[in-house]
Simulated assay, not measured.
Amino acid sequence: MGISAAKRLFAALLVSSIGLLSACGGGTSSSTEGKGGPSAAPAEPAADYAELSPDQLAEKIKAEGAIVSYGMPDTWANYEEIWKTFTEKYGITHTDTDMSSAEELAKFEAEKDKPVADVGDVGITFGPTGKSRSILTAHKNKYWGEIPDWAKDPEGYWCSEYTGSISFIVNTKKVTNVPKSFADLLKPEYKGKVSIDDPMRSAQAKAGVLAAAFSRGGDEANIQPGIDFFKELFQAGNYKPLEVNIANVQKGEIAVGIIWDFNSLNWKDQLHMDELTVVIPTDGSVTIPYVAVINKYAPHPYAAKAFNDFLFSDEAQIAYAKGFARPIRNVKLPDEVAKKLLPDSAYTASKTIKDYAKWDETASKAIPALWEEQVLPEQK
């Protein structure tokens, strides 16, 4: 999962999706310079991992010397701190190549005879896809019992580390009243002031359509209410065709943007703009997980499994929260971290997806087709 539009959707679901939150581009980002090149054959699967003492495991990981990831760059969800903590603990190096969820799985498969990457972070719909293609390793992390059933594969092939929810980022210098719901966005006072990325391409925007559908009684199997909402928004002239990114927010060109909460909260924190506020719509939103996966052919299998365990530890879950991604575990956050996030009560109307296979079909096929056929013709 990366920072490109496909991913960040809290993301490829997501983003997309959902990506959430979820996040992906091309490019390479490294915490350190990687050593340990591709192996010529599928790696030993570390079958004895669970039986090793901490000292024995540390020796195994140090001997591997490196861990390689796809779609987990330093700039996403505070991975810089997460990677730094993990690699320093074991004295190994880390390299990441940023890419979309779909690209991550494709690379796992294409490189199986000469594997490169050990782990990845993907939109939740890609977890079942990787499992069905037999390119992932099952591993139930040490905190498995604390993860909600909807956020993990029963056999351990994928598990959510954090979530993202659709929010509004609002510039109070551009609007008199802060909108609280999708219904509010249809009011005349928001004429030419509501922006969303292109749902034909962006996972984040597709999640925005799903959130609007939830606000009107729809869901992943019935996306038409969300399409109808945006059709009405366009008809009212309230839509402003502008990409919702940090640059446009900083320039004051975004009055109301529909984006992941971890993006909106992060940008508010980075920009130090007092006029920015973040709202989770009260009539409906969607919460989507990103999931951690381990490459079946990981060249550094001990490091891969140890890192997967680490992602669900209190330390890493708090680090995610520092990056404005909501931890999947109910960990106690330091006050200085918690105060930067929205309270749990803000998410009362946010729902999770029940059928991710259906959502995958809806996001990849139905939304792009319906947006082109029904929404775009209404643009003024």
Rank of each mutant, 00 (worst) to 15 (best):
residue 341 L to T: 07
residue 318 I to M: 13
residue 350 S to I: 12
residue 346 A to C: 15
residue 283 D to C: 04
residue 337 V to M: 01
residue 330 N to A: 04
residue 284 G to A: 05
residue 285 S to N: 07
residue 271 L to F: 05
residue 321 A to P: 03
residue 363 A to T: 08
residue 320 Y to M: 09
residue 285 S to L: 00
residue 273 M to Y: 14
residue 269 D to K: 10
residue 371 W to A: 12
residue 268 K to M: 09
residue 359 W to N: 06
residue 281 P to M: 08
residue 299 P to S: 14
residue 284 G to L: 05
residue 307 F to R: 00
residue 353 I to G: 02
residue 262 F to I: 08
residue 344 D to K: 03
residue 291 V to I: 02
residue 334 P to S: 13
residue 290 Y to A: 02
residue 297 Y to G: 01
residue 313 S to H: 02
residue 374 Q to F: 05
residue 353 I to P: 00
residue 325 A to H: 00
residue 344 D to C: 05
residue 263 N to K: 08
residue 254 I to Y: 00
residue 348 T to S: 07
residue 348 T to E: 13
residue 347 Y to D: 09
residue 282 T to K: 07
residue 312 F to V: 12
residue 339 K to C: 07
residue 318 I to C: 10
residue 349 A to K: 00
residue 300 H to T: 06
residue 255 A to W: 00
residue 332 K to C: 04
residue 263 N to A: 09
residue 360 D to C: 15
residue 349 A to R: 00
residue 313 S to E: 04
residue 318 I to R: 09
residue 298 A to K: 08
residue 259 I to E: 01
residue 346 A to V: 11
residue 369 A to S: 15
residue 355 D to I: 11
residue 331 V to Q: 01
residue 356 Y to H: 03
residue 299 P to Y: 10
residue 327 P to F: 00
residue 319 A to P: 06
residue 325 A to V: 11
residue 303 A to K: 09
residue 303 A to L: 15
residue 324 F to P: 10
residue 299 P to N: 11
residue 374 Q to E: 01
residue 334 P to W: 07
residue 364 S to V: 15
residue 360 D to R: 04
residue 367 I to K: 09
residue 276 L to Y: 08
residue 361 E to D: 13
residue 297 Y to A: 12
residue 292 A to E: 14
residue 275 E to T: 06
residue 331 V to M: 01
residue 332 K to N: 05
residue 307 F to Q: 05
residue 307 F to T: 01
residue 324 F to D: 02
residue 366 A to G: 06
residue 363 A to K: 10
residue 375 V to Q: 06
residue 290 Y to C: 00
residue 322 K to P: 06
residue 376 L to S: 06
residue 336 E to W: 09
residue 349 A to G: 06
residue 324 F to Q: 11
residue 268 K to A: 08
residue 367 I to C: 00
residue 365 K to N: 14
residue 284 G to I: 02
residue 325 A to I: 00
residue 282 T to G: 00
residue 361 E to I: 13
residue 342 L to F: 10
residue 269 D to A: 04
residue 310 F to D: 12
residue 268 K to R: 14
residue 368 P to Q: 12
residue 298 A to T: 09
residue 355 D to Q: 13
residue 274 D to H: 03
residue 370 L to R: 09
residue 282 T to Y: 05
